[in-house]
C-alpha cells in the first residue's frame, strides 16, 4: 500500500501535464495548422451555389427524382442520409430483412427504368457503411444513364459525357476504387436541366428543402 500512496503525486501530476498537452495543446495546434493550411477541408468541404452551402462534397444526399443520379441506399435514422447520426444497417448476410430490402431496391430500380433488364449493380442495392457514402461505382452510374437521359429529355450521350468527366480513378492507378461523386454529378446535370426547360425543381431547392 505504501508504494501505491507514494506514487499518487506522480500519477496525478503526470496525468495533469499529459492531459493539458495531448487534450488541449495538441488538438488546438492541429486545429490552428489545419485552419491555416486547409481551411475549406478542415471545415467540412462545403459546396456552395449562389452564396449558400448546398451540401458537403464528402457527404452523400438522398436523391429519388428519376432525372437525377441516385446514390447508395442509406440506413441512417430516422431518415436516410442523416449526417447528424451516421449508421450502417448491420444486417447479416443471411438475414431475411437484408434480402427483403435488396429485393425492394432492385424492384424500385426496375420500376423507374422498365426497359433496363441488366442485373442491378451491387452498390446501388446495398446500404453503405456510413449511410453517408458520397460515391457510387462507375458501373452503378452507367446503369442509370438511360433513365436520367429519358427523364431530362436529353440524349444518353450528353449525360454520359458529363458522367465520364466525374469518374475518379484509383490514386496512382493503384489505391482505392474508381468512383463517381453523386452530388457533384447531379450539380453538373443542372446545366442540361436548364437547357431542357423547367424539368422539376432546381437543384438548390431540392437540396435545401430536405
Amino acid at each position: 500500500m505504501g508504494t501505491v500512496l507514494s506514487q499518487f503525486r506522480p500519477a496525478a501530476m503526470s496525468l495533469l501535464v499529459l492531459s493539458a498537452l495531448t487534450g488541449v495543446v495538441y488538438p488546438a495546434a492541429v486545429t490552428a495548422a489545419a485552419q491555416l493550411l486547409f481551411p475549406w477541408r478542415a471545415n467540412g468541404s462545403l459546396v456552395e451555389r449562389g452564396g449558400r452551402a448546398v451540401g458537403s462534397e464528402l457527404i452523400g444526399q438522398a436523391f429519388s427524382d428519376p432525372g437525377r443520379f441516385w446514390g447508395r441506399p442509406s440506413a441512417t435514422g430516422p431518415s436516410p442520409y442523416n449526417a447528424a447520426a451516421s449508421s450502417g444497417s448491420n444486417l447479416g448476410p443471411t438475414n431475411p430483412a437484408l434480402l427483403d430490402a435488396v429485393r425492394a431496391r432492385v424492384e424500385a430500380l426496375r420500376g423507374a427504368d422498365p426497359g433496363n433488364a441488366r442485373p442491378a449493380p451491387v452498390d446501388l442495392v446495398t446500404a453503405s457503411a456510413s449511410g453517408l457514402d458520397p460515391h457510387i461505382s462507375p458501373a452503378a452510374a452507367t446503369y442509370q444513364v438511360p433513365r436520367v437521359a429519358r427523364a431530362l429529355g436529353r440524349s444518353e450521350a450528353e449525360v454520359r459525357t458529363l458522367l465520364e468527366r466525374r469518374v475518379e480513378g484509383r490514386l496512382l492507378g493503384l489505391l482505392g476504387e474508381p468512383r463517381v461523386n453523386v452530388l457533384l454529378l447531379n450539380l453538373d446535370l443542372e446545366g442540361l436541366r436548364q437547357k431542357a426547360g423547367p424539368h422539376g425543381r432546381p437543384m438548390e431547392e431540392v437540396l435545401l428543402s430536405k
Binding site: 447508395r72 450502417g88 444497417s89 448491420n90 444486417l91 448476410p93 437484408l98 449493380p121 451491387v122 452498390d123 446495398t126 446500404a127 453503405s128 457503411a129 456510413s130 457514402d133 460515391h135 457510387i136 461505382s137 462507375p138 458501373a139 452503378a140 452507367t142 465520364e164 469518374v167 480513378g169 482505392g176 476504387e177 474508381p178 468512383r179
Partner: peptide, 17 residues
C-alpha cells in the same frame, strides 16, 4: 474504367474503399 465496380458483398461498405 467506364463501368468499373469492386463487386462482391457491398452491404456495409463504402464505394471508395
Amino acid at each position: 474504367a467506364a463501368a468499373a465496380s469492386s463487386g462482391g458483398n457491398m452491404e456495409g461498405k463504402e464505394v471508395r474503399f
